[in-house]
Design a binder for these strands. Structure first.
Lengths: 184, 184
DNA sequence: GTCTATATTCCGATAGAC
DNA sequence: GTCTATCGGAATATAGAC
């Protein structure tokens, strides 16, 4: 059973990735909890406080993901990663990285720092997974692993964005094309 | 000499792609023109009206771009396209597609329709340029042209986003990697 | 036709009740 | 510790002056 504080983070995360950081308000959250907006301020005094908690939540989730994925081989790990983004797309949300990127210049430095840290964690994991997969002859690509990682991440991030604009099939096709190209 | 109405679109465009659609206000524009915010409402009664004008501006700009690029071969045209995104990144802005995507669910249907149309225009041009470039043996890629186009567009869109978070060099490396892979 | 003064609504946040 | 009543300010938008 999730505490109120945890529920607020989940609702905040959903709102940030569905409506956008600057588009959602505390009232959007409080309405769903049948309290006044000020009650949210008790748990998270300011909006940046909530944003930080949301990024922390994603960092924890990603760490659980990589932990869980670590039992698989590198090709399957990359496949799991892309499928994770497919589930984001299907739920109508955006990747948290892409969502915060558009509101970057209206965000507090503390939040920016957390997002940068999270992004580097994700990029680092993809890079290392690609590198090891290539070493084991499970994966193939021509660019350096860290650049290939950025290309895959940008495909996924903007893939969920593009799907909003032009339709859901586009995301699936991008995903399958990536897998076809890098998995032997 | 640009008219006031044109200047407002230019300022609005800059604000949308720097701060985000929901983060900027008419006051941000009126301040730079030394008028009251209500003066902007005269030229563009509502914010969605201005947003539509901004998308129209991008459609016109893109049409001028493809017209100008049409004298070059397909490899150079793709190179020009990626360099155009490099200039976006350097100016600290985002691609208009990625910028509107995050605020998608708080936007009017009319604006959404214009963005969808613009995005399809861009995707159509990349697809056709890739297809012809391959036919002429100037370009090489394994996926269908329309999917390769989506991958390049998502690399560019989210590349400008990623650069905000992790630094400008990342964008350049993505760009060079794409060119290296598809240009013979 | 262009702009200003003003209304209205909503947001983030504080002070204080329970 | 948890929530409500309420404030100050900002954002969009209208009515009307010049």
């Amino acid at each position: 059973m999730a505490s109120t504080k945890e529920t607020i983070v989940l609702l905040g995360d959903e709102l940030i990735r569905k409506k956008g950081y600057n588009a959602f308000s505390y009232a959007d959250i409080s309405r769903q909890l049948n309290v006044k907006n000020a009650a949210i301020h008790y748990h998270y005094p300011s909006k940046p406080d909530l944003a930080e908690a949301v990024v922390d939540f994603h960092t924890d989730s990603f760490n659980r993901f990589t932990e869980k994925a670590s039992s698989k081989n590198e090709a399957d790990q990359i496949k799991m990663f892309l499928n994770f983004y497919a589930s984001i797309q299907l739920s109508g949300k955006l990747c948290v990285i892409g969502s915060f990127a558009s509101d970057w210049n209206s965000m507090e430095e503390e939040v920016q720092g957390k997002v940068t840290e999270f992004t580097n964690t994700v990029l680092g994991w993809i890079t290392e997974t690609l590198r090891m997969g290539k070493e084991k002859n499970l994966l193939s690509f021509t660019s350096p692993a860290n650049i290939e990682a950025m290309k895959i991440l940008t495909n996924m991030c903007a893939g969920t964005q593009l799907a909003r604009i032009t339709g859901s099939n586009d995301f699936t096709e991008i995903k399958n094309s990536i897998l076809k190209e890098i998995i032997h």
